[in-house]
Amino acid sequence: MTKQEQIALDKIAKNDHEIYALIKQRYSPRIFKDQALTDQDVNRLFEAVRWSASSNNWQPWRFIYAHKGSDAYNKIVECLSDFNQSWATNAPLLLLTAYKEQNPDGKENFHALHDLGLSLGNMAIQAEYMGIALHHMAGVDWKKAHEVFEVPSGYHVTTAIAAGYYGGDLNDLSEELQEQETATRKRMPQEDFAFKGGWASK
């Protein structure tokens, strides 16, 4: 068993209640197998997005994506925070996520971010089914992304995603990031966020 395979086993969630296996297995690596994602791979990920739930079926999610080696990929890297730039180039595919701010009537779509999140949940489970890892990144300069990619008014770039097949060499990361990569996963207990009958004073 390789070290990365052992890490993947160690990352399986220690759940308190039984859940779907793909949810247990999913985690967010910063290293990826040296294998390009094909157009078919990408199409399957976006097909999962396409069938996500959304308010009034408005489907406000939007994406910009690029394969490693392309000018667009390098432009996405330039929009990432310095920290994310230090590892994200390990990924064969980078994406920017965005949402449409208004509904078809021109009013604010209050649920657009919620719907974008639902679409990314679909993508994450589809990716896990395919052996593909996603690492979602908040550290992105959305204003710069708007300029670089000439995002039209009425849309808002939100996050970035590094995508690639699970695997890769742990030595491609700094010592600090290697520690994070192998750290035990932790989650708050259910009673800290799910309140039966009324809001708890947490």
Results as ranks from 00 to 15, higher is better:
residue 46 F to P: 11
residue 141 D to N: 14
residue 25 Q to P: 08
residue 92 P to I: 02
residue 32 F to S: 09
residue 104 P to G: 01
residue 81 S to D: 10
residue 14 K to C: 11
residue 75 K to N: 12
residue 113 L to E: 08
residue 23 I to V: 15
residue 105 D to I: 03
residue 24 K to Q: 14
residue 83 F to C: 03
residue 74 N to D: 15
residue 94 L to I: 07
residue 15 N to V: 15
residue 97 T to A: 13
residue 48 A to D: 05
residue 118 L to I: 14
residue 87 W to Q: 10
residue 54 S to K: 09
residue 104 P to F: 03
residue 128 E to S: 00
residue 37 L to G: 05
residue 138 A to G: 15
residue 113 L to P: 03
residue 95 L to H: 11
residue 115 D to H: 12
residue 120 L to Y: 05
residue 61 W to S: 07
residue 24 K to Y: 06
residue 115 D to I: 11
residue 111 H to P: 01
residue 42 V to K: 03
residue 49 V to F: 05
residue 48 A to Y: 04
residue 94 L to G: 07
residue 43 N to F: 02
residue 28 S to W: 08
residue 86 S to W: 11
residue 44 R to Y: 02
residue 15 N to G: 07
residue 118 L to N: 12
residue 118 L to D: 12
residue 77 V to E: 13
residue 142 W to F: 14
residue 36 A to V: 04
residue 50 R to Q: 15
residue 131 G to S: 05
residue 39 D to V: 00
residue 112 A to M: 03
residue 17 H to G: 06
residue 98 A to Y: 05
residue 110 F to N: 01
residue 102 Q to R: 11
residue 55 S to H: 09
residue 35 Q to N: 05
residue 112 A to R: 13
residue 36 A to F: 02
residue 135 H to F: 02
residue 122 N to S: 14
residue 138 A to S: 11
residue 103 N to W: 13
residue 27 Y to K: 06
residue 85 Q to S: 12
residue 61 W to V: 00
residue 56 N to W: 00
residue 134 L to W: 02
residue 114 H to V: 08
residue 116 L to N: 03
residue 94 L to R: 09
residue 81 S to C: 08
residue 138 A to C: 08
residue 97 T to V: 10
residue 58 W to R: 15
residue 127 A to N: 00
residue 41 D to H: 08
residue 16 D to F: 10
residue 29 P to V: 04
residue 115 D to A: 09
residue 37 L to K: 00
residue 31 I to F: 07
residue 22 L to G: 02
residue 69 G to A: 01
residue 35 Q to P: 07
residue 22 L to N: 13
residue 126 Q to M: 12
residue 32 F to R: 13
residue 115 D to P: 15
residue 10 D to V: 02
residue 36 A to I: 02
residue 94 L to F: 04
residue 90 N to E: 11
residue 15 N to M: 12
residue 108 E to M: 05
residue 21 A to M: 13
residue 28 S to I: 01
residue 140 V to F: 04
residue 64 I to S: 01
residue 119 S to E: 06
residue 97 T to C: 10
residue 105 D to P: 00
residue 64 I to H: 01
residue 18 E to F: 00
residue 11 K to P: 01
residue 47 E to N: 04
residue 84 N to L: 05
residue 36 A to P: 02
residue 38 T to R: 04
residue 23 I to G: 00
residue 31 I to K: 07
residue 69 G to F: 00
residue 58 W to F: 15
residue 33 K to M: 07
residue 99 Y to W: 01
residue 13 A to C: 06
residue 124 A to H: 04
residue 92 P to A: 03
residue 51 W to S: 05
residue 46 F to L: 10
residue 21 A to N: 14
residue 85 Q to L: 01
residue 87 W to V: 07
residue 17 H to D: 09
residue 85 Q to F: 01
residue 82 D to H: 08
residue 13 A to I: 04
residue 53 A to E: 09
residue 59 Q to N: 13
residue 99 Y to K: 04
residue 32 F to T: 09
residue 112 A to L: 02
residue 140 V to H: 06
residue 68 K to R: 09
residue 101 E to T: 05
residue 74 N to I: 07
residue 98 A to H: 09
residue 71 D to S: 13
residue 17 H to I: 05
residue 25 Q to R: 14
residue 50 R to Y: 14
residue 137 M to I: 15
residue 56 N to K: 15
residue 128 E to A: 00
residue 140 V to T: 07
residue 38 T to Q: 05
residue 14 K to H: 15
residue 114 H to G: 11
residue 37 L to P: 08
residue 130 M to H: 11
residue 139 G to E: 06
residue 118 L to R: 12
residue 47 E to G: 01
residue 96 L to K: 06
residue 47 E to V: 02
residue 120 L to V: 08
residue 69 G to I: 00
residue 67 H to V: 03
residue 100 K to N: 04
